[in-house]
Design a binder for these strands. Structure first.
Lengths: 204, 204
DNA sequence: TTTTTGTTTAAACACACGTTTAAAAACAAT
DNA sequence: ATTGTTTTTAAACGTGTGTTTAAACAAAAA
């Protein structure tokens, strides 16, 4: 298991795991050092502080996360298929990293720093020309006329929340992990059908 | 402003405000004591520890939250109207307490204790006979045949997430608080229409 | 070999935390 | 007034935190 990774990446890997699952306040520097198999002092030797390490981690997570979306958006397919694939990929991504939505929403809410601006994410989105594509589909009548904020919310609500609420729903319904995962796969179909029907009324 | 409340309720009020906004790990006993205008030691005089105080607060929040739902469910109206009113009331409740969804999902995920069982919430739900009502509507064909977990997820996703993601979406789209609140009211209409159309196909 | 440079460590620092103690203050009963 | 009880406080305790220090270690340069 123990590869010959550089100390810096060992620390970053450990920090990412622990920060994502426990949050900034929910873990300690020593915990991260242990997970990385190094001394605490090395943390501040490679990164100046716990806070700076955290900023690096949250930036990288945010980048990975948005890239997986942009990757779909810049593909050459119809808007309706983009929505379909986006939901599919989103459920796929979140199945592997279910703690990320909670992590982003919680930790980003505390920070005053605008990581999206720092990472030029807005620009990356513009390059995909998705905004113009939506506008065109709305004027042609193919797509329902709703604003981009609501469109974003509809997509994210129905993709992210089922993963965020997993512990709660599991408790309420006394479900095992595997059972809930099955539910998720079924739910993905419902969500896809519902959103496609609503956003593209002609296609129902 | 300073009413003649008992010390115990002053502490509970302060604790509720601070726990909900900052979480258990995101605040200190002294912070709560300050907000309540009392000494730190009094916290452990009235409640044995920070943890016990937290359990009391999260129980009360959970109770308030579910009661607002049950209140609608036990009303005497058609299922389709219950869904409509439920969304309406949910957006109304969350407009007043927007931090609660995040609070519940985050803090409940950490605890191993099952607060829902402790508070007899399941029983309260059963009393409303909503489960039978859904089953009847599904066999009669009025309602789409989806499982209760997915039904719950659809409702919660589209009601809670828009409030949970408020800081993030505001940042991404450079929106002021008032602007986002306007978006929320519009979004509520979209969500209502989408869910009603999907859950009750005949009515579209 | 010696020196130099970059890594890693054990130990300590200063401080904030949750909690406890002992005494003061406020109040009630006799 | 005196006693007893409850409420409140200032101060301290022990522990865990993020961070720093100074020394040990390793690898390369001289």
């Amino acid at each position: 298991m123990e590869r010959d990774l550089s100390t810096e990446t060992k620390i970053k890997d450990a920090a990412k795991r622990i920060f994502i699952t426990n949050g900034f306040n929910g873990c300690t520097s020593r915990e991260i050092a242990n997970e990385a198999g190094i001394n605490v002092a090395l943390l501040n030797y490679y990164f100046k502080s716990k806070g700076q390490l955290f900023d690096i981690i949250i930036s990288s997570v945010l980048k990975d996360f948005t890239l997986s979306i942009i990757d779909v958006l810049k593909n050459n397919m119809s808007l309706i298929n983009k929505v379909r694939i986006l939901i599919e990929k989103e459920y796929e991504f979140l199945s592997k990293h279910p703690e990320i939505p909670n992590f982003i929403i919680n930790e980003l809410g505390k920070k005053d720093k605008n990581f999206f601006e720092c990472l030029d994410i807005a620009e990356e989105f513009h390059k995909t020309k998705i905004f113009q594509e939506v506008l065109d589909a709305q004027t042609s009548g193919e797509m329902r006329k709703i604003d981009l904020v609501s469109l974003m919310l509809l997509m994210m609500s129905n993709c992210h929340f089922p993963f965020m609420a997993k512990p709660m729903i599991k408790t309420i319904n006394s479900l095992e992990d595997a059972q809930y995962n099955e539910h998720l796969m079924v739910h993905k179909q419902y969500v896809t059908e519902m959103l496609i029907n609503y956003l593209f009324p002609k296609n129902s």
